[in-house]
Design a protein around this nucleic acid. Structure first.
Length: 484
DNA sequence: ATGTCC
């Protein structure tokens, strides 16, 4: 599949019209600079046009500027479906349900933290389980885990692992209300209950970052978000629902492939786009199970924040008030949510799939905590361990993409190629020169996650801004990182 | 992403 027919609408906005491929119900919009679009794999255009052919899709299928090839949907895909006529697809959400980002500010500066950096990273690494198959300190019974799946971050508040402000500054306040454990397999529950408070593997990490004064693009918004001192330390982390969400996605992909297509007369261009009508019992069951995984992931990140606060206090010998580890925001980038949007001039209840895409609410949104209603939602874009990450804010122009923005840099090469191409010695030498201290359970992960394996994050941010999806606030550069 | 293959 080639990209013939792709046309440029604006400096950073491109369209695949419905004539691009037979069966497309709506056009595709892709945000990206010429450079990013040029570097996109042809598979991205193929995949997102398949998405635009799914039953009940509304308005446009979107691909964010960090888009790359994924399972069925591209990573960076956004699609809204009519809640009555449309479908829900596990491939449009991702195997790692509610994979997301949390950003935490502190009252420390790099100068103050620097002497303790190594000890801090070593202690975080020993306290926060990371890596494939990692199990957490909380060994929950099935009944406790069931409560956690229904209550999300509220469970953590009840157990003393969260503060009220943490919940207020989490998407959906850390709980999707439609969770129903009866839709989750025994196997998924058994995998999930030991994994609360664990980071995972691959590109999941926890990173200590610095907000250098030269990297602040919007001082007023940064200050509202709690970043106001030169070289202030912040902590960003990225993880999801571990084997729990993965098992739920696997269970329902199998079910949808086996039953739903024949039963509901659905045909898809790619078997990886297995789906069910959202309103049908099978679609509702997956959605309710998905909400359980979303809640597990919110709780997972909340427990990690709790561990982070403990370690900072212990290593630095300071109380919580002195370390000042306050959550800026927590946002999911692998989910489906029921939202109200204007499509064709009519307000409609729609199911928005965001896979590798961040919700980005505009200023004034009532779904934001009051302190952020003037600025818009904090949008957290995680970069590679070498190149830095960005904090942006939602803007009113984001209405065109169902208020969605990019989520990361996006890979430019597969893990296998990265391992083949990059020398571990060179990466380690470079990290030392750049003064980035990393602890990882696997040396191979270092090559897979090396900076050059990813797109230029500054270019992704430029595209997000130029396409009117979100506005840059501050770039954050890494000094310490733990990963699986 | 993932008890990295049922």
């Amino acid at each position: 599949m080639k990209r013939n027919g792709l046309r440029q609408l604006e400096a950073a906005l491109w369209e695949l019209p419905v004539s691009f491929k037979k069966g497309m119900k709506v056009p595709v919009h892709i945000a990206g600079t010429e450079k990013l679009i040029g570097g996109m794999d042809d598979a991205v255009f193929d995949q997102i046009s398949n998405v635009a052919s799914l039953p009940g899709i509304l308005d446009r299928a979107w691909c964010m500027p960090d888009g790359h090839k994924g399972y069925g949907f591209p990573i960076g895909g956004v699609a809204a479906f009519d809640a009555e006529e449309g479908v829900i697809s596990p491939g449009g959400i991702g195997f790692d349900i509610n994979c997301g980002m949390r950003l935490v500010t502190s009252s420390l500066t790099w100068e103050e933290l620097r002497p303790n950096l190594r000890e801090l990273v070593d202690t975080l690494y020993s306290r926060i389980p990371a890596g494939v198959g990692g199990e957490g300190a909380l060994n929950l019974s099935l009944s406790e885990f069931s409560d956690l799946c229904h209550e999300g971050a509220r469970w953590c508040l009840k157990k003393g692992y969260a503060g009220q402000e943490d919940l207020a500054r989490t998407e959906d306040e850390g709980c999707m209300d439609d969770a129903d454990i009866s839709a989750v397999s025994r196997e998924a529950l058994e995998r999930g209950r030991t994994q609360v408070g664990t980071l995972g593997s691959g590109n999941h990490y926890l990173e200590i970052q610095v907000a250098e004064p030269g990297n602040v693009r919007d001082m007023d918004t940064a200050a509202v978000f709690g970043i106001e001192r030169p070289n202030q330390i912040v902590v960003m982390f990225h993880c999801g629902s571990r084997g729990f969400g993965h098992q739920i996605a696997t269970d329902y992909l199998k079910l949808f492939t086996k039953i739903s297509h024949a039963k509901y007369g659905i045909s898809v261009n790619d078997r990886e786009l297995a789906c069910a009508p959202f309103a049908a019992p099978e679609g509702q069951a997956y959605y309710r199970a998905m909400c359980c995984a979303a809640n597990m992931a919110f709780a997972n990140r909340q427990i990690i924040l709790h561990l982070l606060r403990e370690v900072f206090s212990e290593v630095l010998g300071k109380g919580p008030a002195e370390t000042g580890l306050r959550q800026i925001y927590d946002v999911t980038h692998n989910t489906a949510r029921v939202e109200t949007h204007l499509t064709d001039g009519v307000e409609k209840r729609v199911l928005v799939h965001r896979k590798g895409a961040t919700r980005a609410l505009p200023p004034g949104s009532v779904d934001l905590p009051p302190e952020y209603r003037r600025t818009g939602q904090p949008v957290i874009i995680g970069g590679s361990m070498e190149t830095g990450s960005w904090l942006l804010a939602g803007v009113s122009g984001g209405a065109r993409s169902f208020f969605s923005s990019a989520h990361g840099s996006g890979r430019v090469m597969g893990r296998r190629q990265a391992k083949k191409q990059f020398s571990l010695d060179e990466i380690e030498k470079r990290l030392e020169e750049e003064e980035i201290y990393i602890r990882s359970s696997s040396r191979g992960v270092l090559a897979e996650e090396a900076g050059p394996a990813y797109k230029d994050i500054d270019e992704v941010v430029r595209a997000s801004e130029a396409a009117g999806l979100s506005a840059p606030v501050v770039k954050l550069v890494p000094v310490g990182n733990i990963k699986g």
